[in-house]
Each structure stands twice: as structure tokens, then as C-alpha cells.
Design a protein around this nucleic acid. Sequence first.
DNA 1: TTGTTAAGATTACACCTGTAATCATAATGG
DNA 2: CCATTATGATTACAGGTGTAATCTTAACAA
Lengths: 123, 123
Amino acid sequence: MKEISNSELAVLNLLWHSSPMSSSEVVAQLDKSKQWHEKTVKTLLNRLVKKEAIGFEKQGRSYLYHPLIDQGEFQLKESQSFIERVFSGKLTPLVAGFAKENKLSSDDIAELKQLIDNWEEEK
Amino acid sequence: MKEISNSELAVLNLLWHSSPMSSSEVVAQLDKSKQWHEKTVKTLLNRLVKKEAIGFEKQGRSYLYHPLIDQGEFQLKESQSFIERVFSGKLTPLVAGFAKENKLSSDDIAELKQLIDNWEEEK
DNA sequence: TTGTTAAGATTACACCTGTAATCATAATGG
DNA sequence: CCATTATGATTACAGGTGTAATCTTAACAA
């Protein structure tokens, strides 16, 4: 599968959150966060279709779009390649960086502890 | 500061690891990992200079390059924007994804525990 | 029925990126 | 002293990206 650009990802994120959605719904949602023109959003939907990242069902004159790729898989792949590029493949320095700069909340810590407990249990 | 592309980052990573370095040294190092032509590497060095990500000292006919931006800062910024884009700003799902797919080693877990301990101590 | 609209398709266009090749020039080997 | 070379500067060029505008056509309003 082709690379998904940042702008395209914003659209895809919406569809992962709720789908199917018509282009006008996507436009309406995105208009809250980004200031994208309707034409821009349509271009992004089109490119995502070409990349086979999303598909659609015809609904009269308009389409209802839905994701074709799995969010979890996408996130894992992206995370791995990001960590490879930026942290030479090591995950903990990323987390350490957040900790150092106080970007971690107590909730984050609690969740991390939980993760570790689960991991150890399964082992 | 301008965005650093992936290829440029590979060069920058080398310079963070050891600097200053001449272009031929950079070429030699990169030739081990990537199969980049000398001309390609020179282009990347040039672009990094234009982006003010690296600087150089003249050394006779050639230059000795060194980073101008801090690796830790860069990594933190990139991490934040990555996590924002891909995980809606939440860090732990990233770590959870790695855990779920068995991408975490015992060493990783040990390091994470250490991090958490330190974090709690400081609080 | 027909002019207007709205949806999707196609085209636009400048800038970035990957990946070099060519140009200009100063140092170096003979 | 001069031809060769190595280094940096400039140029190349296709494909991706952000950000739309224009074109085509089918449905809807009057």
C-alpha cells in the first residue's frame, strides 16, 4: 500500500472514528479542526481511494466512504518506522523523552504500569 | 526551522552520533547502510545546510560538518507531532501496540519500569 | 422542461523529496 | 606549470503533497 500523507491521514482518522460517511459529512467534521476548503477535502478522499486506503458505496448521486485498511495495523507500522528513523529502533528513549519534559500525566503513568503488568502476566 | 526529510535525517543522525565529519566520511558511513551515491549525499548535506540544521567549518578545500540543532529537542518535537497525528495525542496506545504485537523485549520492559520509578520518585 | 446545483472527476500549480548529473574551481601529482 | 581530480555549487527531473479551481453530469427546483 502506498504512503498516506499527513493531510490524507486526517481524513482517514475521521473515517476510522466513524464510518461510513459522505464527503459532505467529512467536510463538516474537518471544518471544525482544519480550515480546509471542500475541494481540498474531496481531493484527499480521491487520493485515498486511489491508494486503496478507503472505499465507497454509491448512495444516489453521492458516495459513502469507509476505511479499507486497519487502523491498528497502520499505527503499528507507522510507529515502527518512526521509531526506526528517529530513535534508531529503540522505543524507550521516546517514552523517556516525554517523561523528561514532563509530557507524561499521572494517567499516562498509570496506563503504562497497567501495560507492563499485563505484559509480565502473559509471559 | 524547516522540516527535515527522511533522507536528510539519516545524514543528521550520523552527525549527531559523531561530528564534525567531512562529506567523504559521511558518504563512507552511509554507504554501509544505504546505497547512496556520493552526489546524493552531497545534495542532502547541502539541503541540511540551507535548512540551517547543520553548519560547517572550512577545512582547506573541503568542509567539516556538524549539527546545529539539538537531537533531543528534535526527537521530542517529532514524537509529539507523530503521536498527535497517528494516536490523537495519546502516548500509551503506541506503547500498547508494541506490547500487543510482541515488539517489546524484557529489556524494554525493564527500562520502562525504571522510567516509571524515576518519574514517581521525582513527583 | 429547463436552468441551477451539487457531487465527483479532472486539471492546476508551486514546493518538497529522492536521486543524481553537470559545472566551476582550487589543490595536487608529475 | 599544467592536466587531473576532488569538492562544493548548481541544475535536473519525475513523483508526491498541500491546496484548490474548473469541468461534467445527473438530480432537483420552478
